[in-house]
Design a protein around this nucleic acid. Sequence first.
DNA 1: TTAACACTGTTATTTTTTTCACAGATATTT
DNA 2: AAATATCTGTGAAAAAAATAACAGTGTTAA
Lengths: 207, 207
Amino acid sequence: MTKKLPDKTVERLSQYRRALLNYLASGKHHIFSHEIANLLHITAVQVRRDIMLIGYTGTLRQGYDVKELIDIIGKIIDSRDGQKVAVVGIGNLGRAIMGYFSGKRTKLNIVAAFDTNPEKVNKIYAGIPCYHNEMLKDIIKNEGISIAVISVPGEYAEKVAEDLILAGIKGIINFSPKPLNVPSHVYLQEFDIVTMLEKVAYFVKKA
Amino acid sequence: MTKKLPDKTVERLSQYRRALLNYLASGKHHIFSHEIANLLHITAVQVRRDIMLIGYTGTLRQGYDVKELIDIIGKIIDSRDGQKVAVVGIGNLGRAIMGYFSGKRTKLNIVAAFDTNPEKVNKIYAGIPCYHNEMLKDIIKNEGISIAVISVPGEYAEKVAEDLILAGIKGIINFSPKPLNVPSHVYLQEFDIVTMLEKVAYFVKKA
DNA sequence: TTAACACTGTTATTTTTTTCACAGATATTT
DNA sequence: AAATATCTGTGAAAAAAATAACAGTGTTAA
């Protein structure tokens, strides 16, 4: 199972798991591919194919064992000992992200936040300590943080990314509008809110 | 030029425009495809293809006229009279989004925010009035708002989406972790932060 | 004036992702 | 027990997106 899965499949697996955890609360133990599909509003074939790709197999006429499936997905997408995450830039967006994770105990732990604003440095946000950006390299290295979320204004994004890369970060999620350049051993996911809005606007506009 | 462009091309066009507006400040009036490519860290072919798709053509040996290109992109992705946008859910994320747009005058105008929290209702955030969710349908209709950003907790997302659709919304950006189901005449863009992080974690994890 | 060069525009190819179509298996109905 | 219905797993086809390859054309250099 070492073979890398398609990008999109990994995204959906994460969503399957969340939906299934929720579904467990209904007390049912089995679920059909078309039921999963309905939860995410996608097609049943897609669900079956994704599940096929991770090597799990359901039972005919009964569908998939919910707990087993949740477990398998965990084995695939989680890393054994969890991964540490840092958030750089404690504006509204940074705090929103920290809020999403606070309380939940998953394999992904936000363990540090960074900002340059002295008002914010050395405070605790959603249970996470905020350090000055100057500390970034040291803390990333010492804590073994492998993933960083960049939620600083565009002007600073490049510099932050450089520092992160020098510190040995492995994955970056960039919320700033500045496209980043990363070496091939760093996985980069960009997300640009303005662009997303403009795209929606394009597909919405009636001539 | 009524033919719909590929999804990804539209995203990139939005990014080209922003990069080009910035590039104008350098005082240069022309730009080569490979220079645009460098700005976004993509390939020159991709840039040329996108530009081909919108029917613009550069001049050999000089590249593209920056202002013209910006104009053409605007003609393609903006709608003539602009579009109105609403943000539903004024948590950190909602405020972050409003912050991105405040001040900038583009063809996309956030004209209303909604929340259920009485502390927030009837206040102004980043210049945008916040109404109670009860007002949603009326205001969407009366103001002619065509796009909505959902930044409420998952539990409320479905209900909000229903109301938006009843109100005649055309496009939705969903930041909640609850997958939405929309009729085919509504364009939906989902963005799930937890899933994105889990995806990055997967591609980053060593063994 | 000819050769080398540097770009664009586009066709062809490849890769990635989704959808179709159906064989196989087991429960249910008649 | 045969016929029917239901659901999985997957090969094959289609659709979407990215990349390669190159013809064409003006520019510069020799």
